[in-house]
Design a protein around this nucleic acid. Structure first.
Lengths: 266, 266
DNA sequence: TAGATAGTTCCAAATAATGAAACTAGGTTT
DNA sequence: AAACCTAGTTTCATTATTTGGAACTATCTA
């Protein structure tokens, strides 16, 4: 369906080109991007030049290939540091994964989708970049449902409309109605499960990280497989998860919504 | 330090605003960005709106604060996956750090500066994002000098001109001439040292990762402190490092050659 | 040598960006 | 309560940039 705004002038177009390059997941030629048909030759050419000048893309003159540029990594570092729960949550997640000995995810909601921010795997730590930045569906993941459940009504409606409802497994919830019903339950228990809804044999418990006014700042989950654990096993972990989420929320909230504090006048 | 493009139209301006937000390292208000004086009110306002629409920034309507947006993290994930040595080098670096038991860095050159791509710390693994994306100086780090040394003459000249030559310690090389002399030596030995040139008591050995035609694709280093090791100790690790660099180069070369962006010279 | 293919440059018309100034919405002072 | 801030938003005529078809160049191919 329609992606985000198509009408944001040159900047929007340039970013679309960036996305296009990113989508290839490998060095790309001018020709290939042109063949995507998004823009006429000269226009695409100039956009690519601009992005290259700006170090958002880099271009190897020898081979004629474009790749994503270094400025992107720099910016993302800043984004992760400042714009996400990542750094704040780290110590809490470390402690949690150490205690539980299971795979822990930290995610945030981005435009109705799940954006993974951090991951801990107790048995063999996997460095961040391999998983941070990955996006997943909102409607069929534990973290996704945990966050969607606590979105304000109007936002939730919008977010639910953006889901694909693709049937990944036989347990996937494939209609907004089914999902909405499940979310209502999650709102009551404060706990969300992934019952093999995304991948067979993969199950998880998740809890939202709630800021002031129950705004969902993110979500935590413990993931495992049906071979090793049951949903009941996971449910037993929920109190730990909730405690961790609360701790993160307490650390994070002052930054995220300094609501009724005085404004400093210069 | 001259920024890149001064005249890349709206896109350049929008990216500058992004950088400005990133530079604050915390949520920012419109007012603050306006006070930076980069753009008039209405212009800044529209740029911010566009970026927010595009998910490059996110704006909390409650508090009136801007932060870096989710699209950035998604893009960066792609950049790291596709545009860097990161994923390819990972198994090699894992093996190396396991064998040596010391802190290992993987870096690439970005516009004359060092961009850290990955890091391994054997005793206590530190998740990636905390360090990937960090930038460091080229002229006074082991990895920086290793890569600068193998740049083609013309590019090296440009890159050397971009260094700040700030005297971080008494050992810092503070002139292009001194640096160029050191680089000549590095070219012969294939090994680069940081002799407390950046921070006191911090030393490292580095080797370049050389692609076809001796093009520097990146660099590897082992870092330690003078309290625990001598430069001679580090030199003894050089063969291991070189072997690792060669292995990475072999994997990487066929399909990646990330270069400096080619800018049109006036 | 002709004929592709891939990338680059031109230029007049169309479009979007600009920014001073006016305006709105909350809050604060007199 | 009126006057007055401050922070943010909108307007609009002017100006500058973007647009894209087409012509051009450089390379590779038969």
């Amino acid at each position: 369906m329609t992606k985000s705004g198509h009408s944001d002038g040159t900047v929007g177009k340039a970013l679309e080109v960036l996305d296009a390059v990113a989508a290839y997941g490998r060095p790309v030629r001018f020709k290939e991007l042109l063949a995507d048909g998004a823009y006429p030759k000269a226009t695409l050419y100039r956009l690519l030049q601009t992005l290259t000048n700006q170090n958002m893309l880099s271009f190897d003159a020898e081979s004629g290939y474009y790749t994503l540029g270094g400025r992107l990594i720099r910016l993302a570092h800043a984004a992760w540091q400042a714009g996400s729960l990542g750094p704040l949550a780290r110590p809490h997640i470390d402690a949690l994964s150490l205690r539980l000995g299971e795979t822990v995810h930290l995610a945030q909601l981005d435009d109705g989708q799940v954006l993974y921010i951090d991951k801990r795997n107790a048995t063999r730590p996997i460095p961040m970049y391999s998983d941070a930045g990955k996006i997943g569906p909102g409607y069929c993941t534990g973290v996704g449902k945990a966050m969607l459940a606590f979105l304000p009504d109007s936002e939730r409606t919008v977010a639910l409309a953006k889901q694909s409802y693709y049937r990944h497994t036989e347990h996937t919830l494939t209609t907004p109605e089914a999902l909405e019903a499940e979310l209502a339950e999650i709102r009551q228990t404060g706990i969300s499960f992934d019952r093999e809804e995304h991948e067979p044999q993969i199950i998880c418990v998740a809890v939202p990280i709630l800021g002031q006014g129950l705004r969902p700042l993110g979500a935590l989950s413990v993931t495992t497989t049906t071979l090793r654990h049951s949903l009941d096993d996971l449910e037993a972990l929920a109190p730990d998860l909730k405690a961790c989420a609360t701790a993160i929320a307490r650390d994070a909230d002052p930054w995220v919504s300094p609501t009724e504090s005085r404004t400093v006048s210069a």
